[in-house]
Simulated scan of single mutants.
Amino acid sequence: MTRSSRRALLARAAALCALPAGAALAQSPRSGYPSRPITLVVPFPPGGATDLMARSIGQRFTRAWGQPVTIENKPGAGGMLAASQVAKAGADGHTLFFGAGAQLAVNASLYSNVPYDTARDFAPVALVGSVANLLVAHPSQPFARLADLIQRARAEPGKLSYASPGSGSTAHLAMELLKVEAGLDIVHVPYKGAAGGVTDVLGNQVPLMIVSMPSVVGHVKTGKLVALGITDLRRSPALPDVPPFADTLPGFEATGWYGLVAPAQTPAAIVQQLGAEVNAALQDAEVRRSFESQGIQVLGSSPEQFAAHIAAETRKWATVIAKARIKAD
């Protein structure tokens, strides 16, 4: 996420929070939406940042409209299985995609045969939040900070490996950028989501993992994992003792973002209703506390702002991937 886009989105979030209580609550249009249960398709297994946010938003939809919301976790193929399922779904607002920048902005440059086109096949609803990535290690590993890892990796090229939630994830791209900028040779071990990689680094089967903060913040706080650095420019209130990568590599930043989209051609009234309810959820004190305690920065946006954000991020990561010569595994 670029600094200018983040400032604009934070301004939008502040404006939303200034609304009177209940002002952003959506009212069902005369069409009676939703008329049946809603499915939120998530491109990762349960337990990661995307799943956490999707479930919070889904619970809000149920409370507001009285319809059940099912979270369908569908990992695989860099999130393309889940995204393509929603792209082909009926444009009536009952099947939605809660995805990340990887699926909505990165995959188009990383893979040669993406089965959907974000601009053509989706109607942006709202940007929900952003998350920095943490580089973590098993406590038995000889790393306390990023500088320690860089020194070790340079001394032993190709001998270290790191786990990520999957090829094309922001975490993967962040680590590949680190390798380029620091001149490192570390082997990538992609997983289908965060949970499997976290399990293996906790068991010291993989020495390192780079992953979104919500997936590991609890393990860092309890000492089960050691955080070497965070990919935001600033320290996180959730883990204030963990330094940014930028302390070692000035200017380094690679945060992930998450949002809700509907199939293209979904009626504008339904898109607006969904967006209003998402933004109302992000004003809820309980939701904000839950997100922020896990290192999630609460955002919020209009459909138009989210569309512009996706377009800007698509351009940004296309340039990064080309310059770094990053390939999907």
Rank of each mutant, 00 (worst) to 15 (best):
A14R: 15
C17I: 09
G22E: 09
L25P: 03
S28Y: 06
S28H: 06
S28A: 15
R30S: 14
I38Y: 07
V41R: 04
A49L: 09
M53K: 08
M53E: 08
I57G: 00
W65S: 08
G66W: 10
I71Y: 09
A77E: 10
A91T: 01
G99K: 04
G99A: 15
G101R: 01
A102K: 04
N113G: 09
V114K: 06
Y116M: 08
D117P: 00
R120L: 12
P124T: 10
V125M: 09
V125I: 15
A132Q: 04
N133H: 15
Q141L: 10
L146P: 01
R154W: 05
L160D: 04
L160Q: 07
S164V: 12
P165Y: 03
P165V: 07
S169C: 07
S169D: 03
K179I: 06
E181T: 08
E181C: 09
K192N: 10
G196K: 03
G196V: 04
V198N: 04
L202V: 12
Q205D: 12
P207T: 06
L208N: 02
M209P: 00
P214C: 13
A227E: 05
G229R: 05
D232V: 02
L239F: 11
P240R: 14
P243R: 14
D247A: 14
A281Q: 03
L282N: 00
E292A: 10
T314N: 11
K316A: 11
T319K: 08
V320F: 12
I321K: 04
